[in-house]
Write a protein that binds this DNA or RNA. Structure first.
Length: 706
RNA sequence: GCGCCCAUAGCUCAGUGGUAGAGCGUUUGCAUGACACGCAAAAGGCCUGAGGUUCAAUCCCUCAUGGGCGCACCA
């Protein structure tokens, strides 16, 4: 027995070597796959039979987290199975430039040296980002190799590489020609920290304990959580049906307010001002006092009121940095929003303009990249019309051309694209950062939303807008596997982009995999230290065990609370496979290995004649069918449970234990060989390592079932 | 506020219209010609609560409770 076939299986001994073997074979590139096998005259790999997956490009800022590991495993299972089935299986990897996230990361690093991006200027800063990307951007892909991902690295793409930039420009110009892109002045979500606009999807809501201030406006009283925006009020609104306030509608009322021209060091003073009362359905008679203040420049809802009542003025009192500007008056100018709030509240209290203050729990919008509280701001931005595009995306799922697994996620998709109330707002595609695709219009400095380029991913990586051979051969893709939080941010936008530019859906099946939660049942969080690093798991238990643990737990896409025990089980299982193989090999020495490999269908029932032989062979056959069916249904967890039960219990505990004194080598070989194939997509390293003991062929391209 | 999901063994989860399973953990044997990362056994659950449908419910329906998540302009 070869010395490296030692008792316990040690993944570290084998995994890197095996990965190198695969890479050197060139078979990750489907163009290099053999077109048929000598033992099989039917051409297994007809050029038309392709199977493509576009890897959701990880951000260059990131390192692999446990969710990536699960997602990569799922995709690798599909790709490996299809490759064994004879498809030209292509899995295209790449990375995303991740505009805001990457810019933030680089700025943070520069800050350590006391440098800001403004010190460097745009050109030099971008050079730094590129340097940073070259240095760190591919770490995550190396981590994918560690878990065994069989991507075609020769086709690796980056959302900012030259070819990809062409695709982005082409898409932009196409939309522009259709007049779906326009510039407009709107109140949008603004992150004062990142100093850029954000789309409606790039928001996270945080619950906050705030205060609800009841402020006197002459004869009226109204409630607000943001008294500082009072300085930008240009109207009051009441509901047209609200009888209490009917008499005021359409009238200008005179109210006493804070005199904002009084300097801060002086005592606050009252000032009489006039303000118009309008009627609008946005005012809910049931809530607060039924009167609302309208601050169109700093509130998204108020801006909508303004759009319905264009006669009211707009007054901006907050700047891009989140500070009060000179419109706010000398008393408040330069104060941060929160400071201004404290100041104005104290002023109003002194002037007896505040009736009462209540505790109030509410959700506030925060930046999805840095967590800073967003400041709605009137701003000139570029928008992409969404009506028709959204309908393209809706149509594909409604018609079943794109299917979600599990199906329930359709709801999230439809809920955004085709909301039950209101409509889908146009997509704010401009960002005021430096790192990204520049908007291809002369004199415009803004860059495009990162997701604008991500939306083109599945076809841009195959060469679109050029009519490349790859695009022709490998598009559309079949499966997209991703996390649920980017269903709208990314999946929906890929669907309509592909429909718009190529007239077909980008993929037919969308797998929304389980979200892996911390033991507490909450999302894993780096800052809380509840995250699990897949690299640590691989280091400790091996890649196969990690893959096993992930798939074993991620049943049916249901969220899971992470339990490392299952990775332990995976490690034990690797060992079991290893040792069973050692035993079988002992019964069938390497001299017979050519026989071992060339068994054909004709002797699926080798000379085994005992009832037990027949039983295990029929169990094997049943398992093969089952596993195949379950993988096709994307039911990976169940497939693995069944495989585990078959191999460990039916084969090892029952059959092997019973007959180890008097084994039937042919049956052993048959069962082991077929089991290794079934196991390979799940646990590629051990299975390939064992397979290598039998000959030179790669298990990776052995026929799935024979 | 609207919507979705979950509640089964100590832990993490499967599952079925006819009173339950896995992995890990625990207990007890066993160094049995691959494996102690093992083998053989065992303990452990009125399947969250209350109603309903049914001959029959852990599984179907309703409500409740607890937990998670998504959406929403309620200032």
């Amino acid at each position: 027995m070869p010395s490296e076939f030692d008792k316990p299986y040690d993944p570290k001994e084998h995994e890197d070597k095996i990965y190198k073997l695969w890479e050197e074979s060139g078979f990750f590139n489907p163009d290099a796959l053999p077109s048929g096998r000598d033992s099989d005259t039917k051409s297994r790999r007809s050029p038309t039979k392709t199977f493509t997956i576009a890897l959701p490009p990880p951000n260059v800022t990131g390192s692999l987290h446990i969710g990536h590991a699960l997602n990569a495993t799922i995709q690798d299972i599909l790709i490996r199975k299809k490759r064994m089935e004879g498809y030209r299986a292509l899995w295209i990897p790449g990375t995303d430039h991740a505009g805001i996230a990457t810019q933030n990361a680089v700025e943070k690093e520069l800050k350590k040296q006391g440098v800001s991006r403004h010190d460097l200027g745009r050109e030099e800063f971008l050079e730094k980002v590129w340097e940073w990307k070259e240095k760190y951007g591919n770490i995550i892909l190396d981590q994918l190799k560690k878990i065994g991902a069989s991507c075609d690295w020769s086709r690796m793409r980056f959302t900012m590489d030259q070819e990809y930039q062409k695709a982005v420009s082409a898409a932009f110009l196409h939309y522009q020609k259709k007049r779906w892109i326009y510039q407009g002045e709107r109140t949008i979500n603004w992150c004062p920290r990142c100093s850029t606009s954000l789309s409606d999807l790039e928001i996270e809501y945080k619950e906050e304990d705030g205060k609800f201030y009841y402020i006197k406006y002459g004869p009226l009283t109204l409630g607000t959580v943001r008294p500082e925006t009072k300085l930008g009020d240009t109207a009051l609104a009441v509901n047209p049906k609200d009888k209490r306030y009917k008499q005021y509608i359409g009238k200008e009322i005179e109210i006493q307010s804070v005199d904002s021209s009084v300097l801060r060091r002086e005592a606050p003073k009252l000032k009489n001002i006039k303000i118009k009362v309008i009627s609008d359905h946005a005012a809910d008679p049931e809530f607060g006092t039924g009167v609302i203040k309208v601050t169109p420049a700093h509130d998204l809802a108020d801006f909508e009121i303004y759009q319905r009542h264009p006669e009211i003025p707009i007054l901006r009192v907050i700047d891009e940095k989140g500070r009060m500007n000179n419109n706010a008056g000398a008393r408040y100018e330069g104060l941060k929003v929160v400071e201004a709030r404290e100041q104005i509240v104290s002023d109003m209290q002194k002037l007896e303009l505040i009736e009462k203050i209540e505790d109030y729990k509410h959700n506030i919008a925060a930046c999805y990249r840095c967590g800073t509280i967003l400041e709605p701001l009137l701003s000139k931005q570029w928008f992409l019309k969404m009506n028709e595009l959204a309908q393209l995306a809706v149509k594909d799922v409604k018609k079943g051309k794109v299917k979600f697994h599990p199906k329930k996620w359709e709801k999230v998709y439809f809920n955004w694209l085709d909301p039950p109330v209101g409509g889908l707002k146009d997509w704010c595609i401009s960002r005021q950062i430096w790192w990204g695709h520049k908007i291809p219009i002369e004199g415009v400095n803004d860059v495009l939303d990162t997701w604008f380029s991500s939306a083109l991913w599945p076809f841009a990586i195959l060469g679109w807008p050029e009519k490349t051979k790859d695009l022709e051969t490998y598009y559309p893709t079949q499966v997209l596997s991703t996390a649920r939080d980017i269903i709208n941010l990314w999946v929906a936008r890929m669907v309509f982009s592909s429909e718009e530019f190529l007239g077909i859906p980008p993929f037919s099946d969308v797998i929304i995999h389980a979200t892996i939660l911390a033991k507490s049942g909450q999302r894993m969080s780096k800052s809380l230290g509840t995250g699990v690093d897949p690299m640590t798991l691989i280091e400790k238990y091996g890649a196969d065990a990690t893959r096993f643990g992930l798939i074993w737990q991620a049943m049916g896409g249901q969220d899971i609370k992470w339990a490392e025990e299952h990775v332990v089980a995976g490690k034990k299982f690797c060992n079991k496979i290893w040792n069973a193989s050692r035993f079988v090999l002992g019964q069938c020495p390497p001299s017979s290995k050519s026989d071992f490999r060339s068994q054909k269908k004709s002797n699926f029932f080798p000379s085994g004649k005992t009832p037990a032989d027949k039983k295990i062979l029929s169990q094997l056959q049943k398992t093969q069918k089952n596993i195949d069916k379950l993988i096709e249904k994307y039911d990976f967890g169940k497939a693995l449970h069944i495989l585990y039960g078959f191999f460990w219990h039916d084969f090892c505990d029952v059959y092997l234990e019973k007959f180890k004194n008097n084994p039937n080598p042919e049956v052993l070989e048959r069962v082991l060989k077929e089991s290794l194939k079934l196991l390979h997509p799940f646990m590629p390293f051990v299975t390939e390592t064992i397979w290598q003991k039998f000959g030179d062929n790669l298990l990776m391209i052995e026929p799935w079932t024979s």
